[in-house]
Design a protein around this nucleic acid. Sequence first.
DNA 1: CGGGACTCCTGAGGGC
DNA 2: TGCCCTCAGGAGTCCC
Length: 286
Amino acid sequence: MPELPEVEVTKRALEKRLLSKKIIKVLIKNDNLRYKVNSRLKNLKGFFIQKIVRRSKFLLLFFNRDFVLLVHLGMTGKFLIKKNNKSLFSRHYHSDTLHSKHNHIEFLFSNKISLIYNDVRRFGFFILENSKNIYNSKFLKNLGPEPFSNKLTVNIVKNKMKKSSRNIKSCLMDQKFIAGIGNIYASEILFKSKIHPTTIAKSISSVKIKKLIKSIKEVLYIAIKDGGSTIRDFMFNEDNKGNFQNKFNVYDRYGLECHICKNKIQKLVINLRSTYFCPKCQRKTN
DNA sequence: CGGGACTCCTGAGGGC
DNA sequence: TGCCCTCAGGAGTCCC
């Protein structure tokens, strides 16, 4: 599920409901996530959320007294919200999801809202840290520039690529390179940039890199506006589901017609991840 | 060291 | 139905 747009949508929904709300209780039903959940999490009782930040695919929940909860949703992690034992979001996840065996952690808030962490594959994790120097923690310190920051420039991207013999798709997926892009959006961004996914990154011209950066911002911006992408799971937001999956140009469209040129969308595996592209719109140049 | 292959985990879907 | 295989939005670790 969660790449930058989905994490950003989650962040905004949490902000809307939980900012400045006090935690009454923390229930750890299953501590067996990617990293074992520290029982110190229960010490957040009585604390309130001051600020929520997204960095790459991480959520940072800042509490009073210098506590910060670092959350990563992994592959299938999501938050559910219920009020007075009822889901705030209609029928879609009523009985099934609110009582799922994949609900691992529950935070009860003073406004009678519960925040439930659900994660089928348990690749997500929660780390409680001191907020001082949090950006120097091992999870955050090596991340590349945020797609919407002005640190993402042609020069910085070209410099990073210069040393590498990798293909551009692998570079986009590398969080040290640019933060927040995952498997869906890497394919969509390369389509919009008209770059073939196996193109050797350092061979790409400055003009094309400029176009690539523009495409990164555009694709991610529209995806956030659409509430992210919902494929086989529903996504957490006010309307239950994201809509960007309806705007995919290439992802999960193997054998279907390209919206631009009508050629058939191709699929290939790069670093064990499915990669989709249009062979005509994204002609290989090296 | 860079980077590709493998790994964690559960469930869905297809072929037989 | 059931069994087996492959694949799924992420990323740390291992090994060449």
